[in-house]
Protein backbone atom coordinates (compact mmCIF):
# COMPACT_ATOMS: atom_id res chain seq x y z
CA UNK A 1 0.00 0.00 0.00
CA UNK A 2 2.67 2.51 1.04
CA UNK A 3 4.70 1.36 -1.94
CA UNK A 4 1.88 2.14 -4.29
CA UNK A 5 1.66 5.66 -2.90
CA UNK A 6 5.28 6.30 -3.87
CA UNK A 7 4.05 6.69 -7.44
CA UNK A 8 2.95 10.34 -7.86
CA UNK A 9 0.27 9.27 -10.35
CA UNK A 10 -1.34 7.03 -7.72
CA UNK A 11 -1.26 9.77 -5.11
CA UNK A 12 -2.77 12.22 -7.58
CA UNK A 13 -5.54 9.73 -8.38
CA UNK A 14 -6.46 9.33 -4.69
CA UNK A 15 -6.56 13.11 -4.15
CA UNK A 16 -8.59 13.64 -7.33
CA UNK A 17 -11.19 11.06 -6.28
CA UNK A 18 -11.53 12.53 -2.79
CA UNK A 19 -11.75 16.06 -4.17
CA UNK A 20 -14.48 15.03 -6.61
CA UNK A 21 -16.48 13.47 -3.79
CA UNK A 22 -16.17 16.68 -1.77
CA UNK A 23 -17.52 18.76 -4.66
CA UNK A 24 -20.34 16.28 -5.14
CA UNK A 25 -21.13 16.38 -1.40
CA UNK A 26 -21.21 20.20 -1.43
CA UNK A 27 -23.74 19.97 -4.21
CA UNK A 28 -25.84 17.43 -2.31
CA UNK A 29 -26.11 19.61 0.81
CA UNK A 30 -27.08 22.54 -1.42
CA UNK A 31 -24.03 24.68 -0.67
CA UNK A 32 -24.34 28.06 -2.39
CA UNK A 33 -22.97 31.57 -2.13
CA UNK A 34 -19.52 33.05 -1.82
CA UNK A 35 -17.90 30.45 0.46
CA UNK A 36 -19.22 27.50 -1.54
CA UNK A 37 -18.18 29.03 -4.86
CA UNK A 38 -14.66 29.80 -3.65
CA UNK A 39 -14.31 26.33 -2.10
CA UNK A 40 -15.38 24.59 -5.30
CA UNK A 41 -13.12 26.74 -7.45
CA UNK A 42 -10.15 26.04 -5.17
CA UNK A 43 -10.89 22.33 -5.36
CA UNK A 44 -11.15 22.50 -9.16
CA UNK A 45 -7.89 24.43 -9.28
CA UNK A 46 -6.05 21.85 -7.15
CA UNK A 47 -7.46 19.04 -9.27
CA UNK A 48 -6.51 20.76 -12.50
CA UNK A 49 -3.00 21.38 -11.26
CA UNK A 50 -2.58 17.73 -10.27
CA UNK A 51 -3.67 16.63 -13.74
CA UNK A 52 -1.21 19.04 -15.35
CA UNK A 53 1.74 18.15 -13.13
CA UNK A 54 1.30 14.44 -12.45
CA UNK A 55 -0.87 13.12 -15.28
CA UNK A 56 0.42 15.26 -18.14
CA UNK A 57 3.80 15.00 -16.43
CA UNK A 58 4.68 18.63 -16.89
CA UNK A 59 6.37 18.86 -13.47
CA UNK A 60 9.71 18.44 -15.19
CA UNK A 61 8.80 20.06 -18.47
CA UNK A 62 10.39 23.28 -19.72
CA UNK A 63 9.15 26.20 -17.60
CA UNK A 64 7.37 27.84 -20.51
CA UNK A 65 5.07 24.87 -21.03
CA UNK A 66 4.33 24.47 -17.35
CA UNK A 67 3.52 28.17 -17.17
CA UNK A 68 1.27 28.01 -20.24
CA UNK A 69 -0.86 25.23 -18.80
CA UNK A 70 -0.92 26.49 -15.23
CA UNK A 71 -1.53 29.99 -16.56
CA UNK A 72 -4.57 28.67 -18.41
CA UNK A 73 -5.88 27.23 -15.15
CA UNK A 74 -5.31 30.51 -13.31
CA UNK A 75 -6.91 32.51 -16.12
CA UNK A 76 -10.00 30.33 -16.34
CA UNK A 77 -10.51 30.18 -12.56
CA UNK A 78 -10.08 33.95 -12.25
CA UNK A 79 -12.55 34.68 -15.03
CA UNK A 80 -15.11 32.34 -13.50
CA UNK A 81 -14.54 33.87 -10.08
CA UNK A 82 -14.95 37.36 -11.51
CA UNK A 83 -18.18 36.45 -13.26
CA UNK A 84 -19.63 34.82 -10.13
CA UNK A 85 -18.55 37.79 -8.04
CA UNK A 86 -20.46 40.04 -10.43
CA UNK A 87 -23.51 37.81 -10.14
CA UNK A 88 -23.45 38.05 -6.33
CA UNK A 89 -23.40 41.83 -6.34
Amino acid sequence: MMNALKNPANRAWVVLIIATLITWYLGEVGAAGTAAIVAMLVIAFIKGRLVILDFMELRNAPTMWRMLLEGWLILVSSLILLAYWISLK
Partner: peptide, 18 residues
Protein backbone atom coordinates in the same frame (compact mmCIF):
# COMPACT_ATOMS: atom_id res chain seq x y z
CA UNK B 1 -5.44 14.16 -19.92
CA UNK B 2 -6.63 17.40 -21.50
CA UNK B 3 -10.09 15.86 -21.94
CA UNK B 4 -9.96 15.03 -18.23
CA UNK B 5 -8.72 18.49 -17.25
CA UNK B 6 -11.54 20.20 -19.15
CA UNK B 7 -14.20 18.09 -17.45
CA UNK B 8 -12.67 18.87 -14.06
CA UNK B 9 -13.56 22.54 -14.65
CA UNK B 10 -16.79 21.82 -16.49
CA UNK B 11 -18.37 19.63 -13.79
CA UNK B 12 -18.35 22.11 -10.88
CA UNK B 13 -19.05 25.04 -13.21
CA UNK B 14 -22.14 23.68 -14.91
CA UNK B 15 -23.45 21.11 -12.40
CA UNK B 16 -22.67 22.43 -8.93
CA UNK B 17 -21.50 26.01 -8.47
CA UNK B 18 -24.19 28.55 -7.63
Amino acid sequence: HMVDLLWIILFPLVYVMR
